[in-house]
């Protein structure tokens, strides 16, 4: 039978609005993606501070930590993009890389101060 009047669809849900549980779908990889964007903005901010007020330890600290963090997340994407790491290990890869970043950070920081 022909539909007599047009059915009114509800527009697509975009990110599970209304759903109290929607944050449960934020998987590890998505956090990695999100934090890389956040750290990118933070780098611009701290870099500006670093240039205008040179050699202030706290600014150097924050800049270095965001740069290192951003870099390891970028490394993750490179490794996965070029299939250098089996995607089976995608979640542990993140942990390893962030740990590596913390180590690099500590070495550089010790080198400066």
């Amino acid at each position: 039978m022909e539909q007599s009047r047009k059915i009114q669809f509800r527009g697509p849900m975009k990110w599970g609005e209304l759903d109290p549980n929607r944050r449960r779908s934020t998987h590890v990889g998505m956090w990695a993606w999100l934090w890389q964007r956040i750290s990118a903005v933070a780098i611009i901010f701290f870099l500006g501070l670093h240039i205008t007020r040179t050699y202030i330890p706290i600014i150097q600290f924050l800049l270095l930590i965001t740069v290192v963090f951003h870099a390891v997340l970028g490394l993750r994407v490179i490794l996965l993009d070029f299939n250098l790491i089996n995607i089976r290990y995608r979640n542990s890869l993140l942990g390893v890389l962030v740990g590596l970043g913390a180590l690099i950070f500590m070495i550089i920081w010790k080198g400066i101060y």
């Binding site: 849900m13 599970g16 759903d19």
Partner: peptide, 11 residues
């Protein structure tokens, strides 16, 4: 909690 899929119009 059960709801329809994202990114598709809900009928």
């Amino acid at each position: 909690t059960i709801r329809p899929l994202n990114h598709f119009p809900v009928i």
